[in-house]
Simulated assay, not measured.
Amino acid sequence: MKKLLTFVLIVMLACLFLDKISGSDMHMQFNGDDVDGPLEWLFGLVFAGGGLLVAAIAVVCAAVVTGVVLAGVGVVLIAVVALCVVLALALSTPVLLPLLIPVAIVWLIVSRNRKQAQARQQSL
């Protein structure tokens, strides 16, 4: 049953394809002249496929250019944010000096206690 169903679907798709590519309802003009004859539909399919290929290439190129531009903008934005952080730290240093004095005292006490603890461990 599965093989029969597969065969019927393939035949149905082939019939639909042949119906769509038949030249009965296709009208094509090339440089202002009507193109007719037995291969009219073939020329139409080739030119339409070429147009789709050009469109696909254009979309891929546009995506690549957009990615490169947005990556460049991202790098510039990161640089601007880093510059703003450095500028903010440089401007806030005089304000933070009274806060840095107690931090430095605590840091010295902790480092002295750490050195004494290491000296005790080495003596054991």
Results as ranks from 00 to 15, higher is better:
Ser92Met: 08
Met12Cys: 12
Pro94Val: 03
Asp33Cys: 00
Asp33Ile: 04
Pro102Cys: 01
Ala117Lys: 05
Val69Cys: 04
Ile78Gly: 04
Val54Trp: 03
Ala90Gly: 15
Gln121Arg: 15
Leu87Arg: 14
Leu70Phe: 07
Ala119Lys: 06
Ser92Leu: 09
Ala62Phe: 11
Asp34Gln: 08
Ala119Tyr: 04
Pro38Asp: 10
Leu70Glu: 10
Leu13Phe: 14
Leu16Asp: 08
Val110Pro: 00
Val59Gly: 03
Leu16Val: 06
Val95Ala: 12
Ala88Phe: 08
Ser92Asn: 06
Leu39Gln: 09
Met1Glu: 15
Ala82Ile: 03
Leu53Asp: 05
Pro102Phe: 01
Val46Asn: 01
Pro94His: 02
Ala90Trp: 04
Phe47Arg: 02
Val80Glu: 10
Val65Gly: 01
Thr66Cys: 07
Leu9Cys: 12
Ser24Lys: 15
Cys61Thr: 14
Phe47Asp: 03
Gly37Cys: 01
Val59Met: 14
Phe47Gly: 00
Asp19Ala: 15
Ala88Glu: 05
Leu77Phe: 09
Val8Arg: 07
Val8Thr: 13
Gly72Lys: 04
Val76Cys: 04
Leu97Cys: 03
Gly32Ser: 01
Ala55Trp: 06
Phe47Asn: 05
Ala88Lys: 07
Ala82Tyr: 03
Lys2Ser: 15
Ala55Phe: 06
Ile10Trp: 05
Pro98Glu: 00
Leu9Glu: 13
Val35Asp: 01
Leu13Cys: 11
Arg112Asn: 14
Val86Thr: 14
Phe43Met: 03
Leu70Cys: 03
Asp25Arg: 09
Ser24Cys: 02
Arg114Trp: 07
Phe30Tyr: 09
Leu53Trp: 07
Leu87Pro: 00
Leu77Thr: 10
Val69Pro: 03
Leu4Asn: 11
Leu9Gln: 13
Ala71Ser: 10
Met28Phe: 04
Gln121Met: 15
Leu96Tyr: 03
Ile105Trp: 02
Ile57Thr: 09
Phe17Lys: 01
Leu91His: 07
Phe7Arg: 14
Asp34Thr: 13
Val46Gly: 00
Met12Ile: 10
Ile105Thr: 09
Val103Leu: 11
Lys20Val: 11
Ala79Arg: 13
Ala71Val: 04
Ile109Pro: 02
Leu53Gly: 08
Val106Lys: 11
Leu91Gln: 08
Gly37Trp: 01
Val81Ile: 12
Trp107Leu: 13
Val35Thr: 01
Val68Met: 07
Ile10Glu: 07
Gly74Thr: 05
Ala119Met: 06
Val110Asp: 02
Met1Asp: 15
Gly37Ala: 00
Leu87Thr: 13
Lys115Pro: 02
Gln116Tyr: 05
Ile57Glu: 09
Thr93Lys: 06
Phe30Gln: 02
Asp25Glu: 10
Val106Glu: 10
Val110Met: 03
Ser22Leu: 02
Thr6Trp: 05
Leu4Thr: 12
Ile101Pro: 02
Leu96Ala: 11
Val64Trp: 03
Val85Glu: 11
Phe43Tyr: 05
Glu40Trp: 00
